[in-house]
């Protein structure tokens, strides 16, 4: 029956089924919102029923959060900063 086939195809296309190993590889693409609609839905469906993958996703988020809050390195050395400021001043004098 034509209509049945059509509906079944649509259902197959609408959501991709993923295995855990595939989900692991797609975490960053998922967080970047770089997945197409079927893949994103499949991902969300898997995450909803797989504790392991859901936890790993949260761990990725947690690591990203801590990376963004790492204490910053020492800044420019004083002498370097002074040299740059005076180079900037000189430039203005050369090109008024």
């Amino acid at each position: 029956m034509k209509r049945f086939t059509h509906n079944r195809d649509k259902a197959v296309n609408a959501v991709k089924r993923f295995r855990c190993a595939e989900v692991v590889e797609l975490v960053t693409a998922y967080l970047e919102d770089a997945l197409d609609e079927p893949a994103r839905l499949g991902m969300e469906q898997h995450l909803a029923c797989c504790r392991e993958c859901d936890r790993r996703l949260d761990q990725f988020r947690a690591v990203i959060g801590v990376l963004g809050a790492l204490p910053s390195e020492d800044g420019l050395r004083g002498d370097v900063r002074d040299r740059l400021m005076s180079a900037f001043r000189d430039r203005r004098h050369r090109r008024p």
């Binding site: 690591v63 801590v66 963004g68 204490p71």
Partner: peptide, 29 residues
Amino acid sequence: PPGPWKDFSALWPTPEDEALASEVRGQIA
């Protein structure tokens, strides 16, 4: 910094004292 550690502590042991938080940052570095 409270923000990132809040998410963090739901998954791994809470870096409640500065020594552990600093240790985790060291591990990340």
